[in-house]
């Protein structure tokens, strides 16, 4: 559960009356919501390291792709898939 997984920001929207900046982040074929509160300068198209639904840093594309491929190869992406299949509160917006 301690891994941060790199993904690409697809879109950004403001929730709760503009108070919260959320992104749709693409991890391979899976899209998940992530908060951008910790990376206020991140823009659409940027790659971010996401840990349990919060982007914690911006990384370059090469680093993101390499590290994602590694996680995929060794089967460490279960937490993304696991959680989105079991008990996700909003399955239709989570995928």
């Amino acid at each position: 559960m301690c891994l941060a997984i790199p993904g690409k920001i697809k879109s950004i929207d403001y929730q709760y009356g503009g108070a919260v900046r959320m992104a749709k982040v693409l991890f391979g074929g899976i899209t998940k919501d992530a908060s951008l509160d910790m990376v206020p300068h991140a823009q659409v198209g940027d790659y971010v390291l996401v840990h349990v639904g919060v982007a914690i840093s911006v990384v370059d594309e090469e680093e993101a792709e390499k590290s994602f491929r590694y996680l995929q190869e060794i089967g460490e992406l279960d937490e993304l898939i696991d959680a989105s299949q079991i008990d996700a509160p909003n399955p239709d917006t989570d995928r």
């Binding site: 696991d82 959680a83 996700a88 909003n90």
Partner: peptide, 13 residues
């Protein structure tokens, strides 16, 4: 008991 990916989902719940 709910398995979640993020604590932010718990706030939504």
């Amino acid at each position: 008991v709910r398995i979640l990916y993020s604590p932010l989902e718990a706030v939504r719940l």
